[in-house]
């Protein structure tokens, strides 16, 4: 369907991860990582990068900005996506709204067809060029939110269209109106597929906001770069940033799996 990121496959993923870990260990070993001197150096740099002057707080603040932007953008994306998908589904379902539908389609095509980074720059430097007292984070939320709205619209639409049309027919044949049938029969079923995909979108967005540094937002990625500039050290701050992203994404992924199981409880394959 319209997912941006491939989901990680289980099982085989573990083997790949194992090989990767071995490779990493070998690389560390051959670069003399497991000597006492290397450890001392590692600790000294660790202290400089994260401990001294509470520099870890820069990462914490960056993380806050990243989560704030991602959450805000997801909320906007949900609202926009809902409206767009209602237009598209209703149009297909027989409501005569060709102009609205064409607009929705254009919106989705344009916003999915251009990089989020480019959209962000246009919002910041063209559309909101004169709005200087506005917190740049709000501009980023708007830019990412409108962008993800296009993806979320497709998630909603895909979720609704994945439901057997017979469900709508059965509901209508009992005398329920289109709206009621949608609300009580189709949407609740579609949501089972939609909700996990929305979390995947959240995960994709979380990573995507890492370009926000370009317009001057100290998000998690940028915080790592700011520490780099302070200590002039390349690897540790970035690796730390990567680890933080990874941990969040892995927790979310695990949560989504559990959620999926729970949503599909009581159902046979």
């Amino acid at each position: 369907m319209t997912m941006r990121n491939k989901q990680t496959g289980a099982g085989r993923g573990d083997i790949v991860l194992g090989i990767f870990a071995l490779f990493l260990l070998y690389a560390l070993y051959s670069s003399g990582f497991f000597t006492a001197a290397a450890w001392q150096d590692f600790n000294r740099r660790f202290y400089q990068n994260f401990v001294k002057d509470s520099r870890y707080m820069m990462l914490v603040d960056g993380l806050k900005a990243t989560i704030f932007m991602t959450s805000g953008a997801t909320l906007i994306g949900l609202a926009v996506g809902l409206v767009l998908s209602v237009i598209r589904v209703a149009h297909k379902g027989g409501a005569h709204i060709p102009v609205l539908n064409a607009m929705a389609e254009t919106y989705i095509t344009v916003l999915r067809g251009t990089p989020a980074m480019v959209q962000l720059l246009i919002w910041n430097f063209t559309i909101f060029a004169s709005a200087r007292d506005l917190n740049t984070q709000y501009i980023a939320i708007l830019a990412f939110g409108l962008n993800s709205g296009a993806y979320i619209a497709e998630i909603f639409r895909g979720g609704i269209e994945s439901i057997d049309p017979g469900q709508m027919e059965a509901a209508r044949s009992l005398g329920l109106s289109y709206g009621t049938s949608m609300k009580l029969i189709v949407l609740p079923q579609a949501l089972r597929n939609i909700i996990p995909m929305l979390f995947n979108e959240f995960i994709a967005l979380l990573k995507e906001t890492s370009v926000a540094g370009y317009i001057g937002i100290d998000d998690l990625t940028r915080a790592g770069q700011n520490i780099q500039a302070l200590t002039l050290e390349h690897s540790q701050p970035l690796v730390m940033v990567a680890i933080i992203y990874l941990v969040i994404v892995m927790c979310l992924t695990r949560f989504v799996r559990k959620l999926e199981e729970w949503l599909h409880r009581g159902r046979r394959g």
Binding site: G166, E169, A170, A171, S173, P188, Q189, R267
Partner: peptide
Amino acid sequence: VFQHFHLFPH
């Protein structure tokens, strides 16, 4: 009543 029942599975 339909050939494929169309019960509401949720």
